[in-house]
């Protein structure tokens, strides 16, 4: 195999079809950028789920009279509820948060917002914050047991399963991920067609070379290789460009968008390492997709 010859042919081919090559690189870059965004969304969703699975708890909000009368859960109603919860094997721990503590946390959460000024300690309920034991990787059983045991009991106003609230966030993030992947798929189809078209145009513009190669007895592999290398190189260039796009997108857009909530620990931050890791995945993806498309095109449509 003459590597120098193949590389020379590749350079000639890329230079000859420079506008097509540029279009192919850009289209591949955009579709891979979408794929990369989708992968980052998946990574963030996974990290968020694991972050919240440690924090999520079931909150048993107490009625107003119990909340006002009992600041340390020593009265019979609250202590009775506490005992029931603590005796359950599905409960890992219970913490009592009185009205004053609830008010302090409320102030921290909504610092600087007008709702923080409106709230008063007596308007917030005291709660029993229940940490659950995981069974088969899920706290589902514990949450329903607590609900069943607490709902309708004297002194209980509501039972709030935080997982219900977070589920909506996860649904939303899942939707974002699906939309991103759907767009990436459409874009990928466009990229595949463009790669296929470019390979055909490239083969057509070099039909004399290809004809001579076949006549003098070059093997099929030798004849096809320059086209395949061209396709793979443009796929890799598209992937690198997509990686650059992801880094720029993170610095210019994601960082400022998520600055507040990431700092507060609401969702985990998207780090540069994450972006670079995803970008590294895109390179072989781009190379393989472009290479396979090029190969199939040559087999199906081009006589080489």
């Amino acid at each position: 195999m003459r590597t120098d010859f193949v590389l020379r042919e590749v350079t000639t081919g890329l230079r000859r079809n420079v506008t097509m090559t540029a279009a192919m690189v850009l289209t591949t870059a955009i579709s891979l950028l979408m794929v990369g965004t989708g992968l980052l969304a998946v990574k963030t969703i996974d990290a968020t789920e694991s972050l919240y699975s440690d924090r999520l708890e079931v909150r048993v909000a107490l009625t107003q009279d119990v909340s006002v009368a009992d600041s340390d859960c020593s009265q019979p109603i609250c202590s009775g509820l506490l005992a029931v919860l603590e005796n359950s094997p599905l409960v890992a721990g219970v913490e009592y948060e009185n009205q004053e503590q609830a008010y302090q946390r409320f102030q921290e959460l909504f610092a600087g917002q007008s709702v923080a000024d409106l709230a008063r300690p007596q308007s917030l309920p005291a709660t029993l914050r229940v940490k659950l034991v995981e069974q088969n990787g899920s706290t589902e059983a514990g949450a329903s047991a607590v609900k069943q045991a607490m709902e309708g009991q004297v002194g209980v106003r509501t039972v709030i399963d935080q997982r219900d609230v977070v589920a909506k966030l996860f649904d939303f993030l899942g939707g974002v991920r699906n939309v991103t992947f759907a767009l990436a798929l459409v874009q990928a189809i466009a990229a595949l067609l463009l790669i296929s078209n470019t390979v055909q145009v490239s083969a057509y513009t070099r039909r004399t070379e290809v004809g001579v190669m076949r006549l003098v007895g070059a093997t099929r592999w030798y004849t096809q290789l320059p086209f395949l290398v061209e396709a793979v190189l443009t796929g890799v260039a598209g992937a690198v460009l997509a990686g650059v796009g992801l880094v720029v997108g993170k610095v210019a857009f994601i960082d400022s968008l998520l600055a507040g909530i990431a700092q507060n620990g609401v969702i985990p931050p998207v780090t540069l390492v994450d972006v670079l890791a995803v970008s590294a995945y895109l390179v072989p993806i781009g190379a393989v997709i472009a290479g396979v498309t090029g190969y199939v095109t040559l087999r199906l449509y081009v006589k080489v």
Partner: peptide
């Protein structure tokens, strides 16, 4: 030279 290069002859 092309006719030789494409069949893998050495430089």
């Amino acid at each position: 030279a092309f006719a030789l290069e494409v069949i893998g002859k050495s430089p």
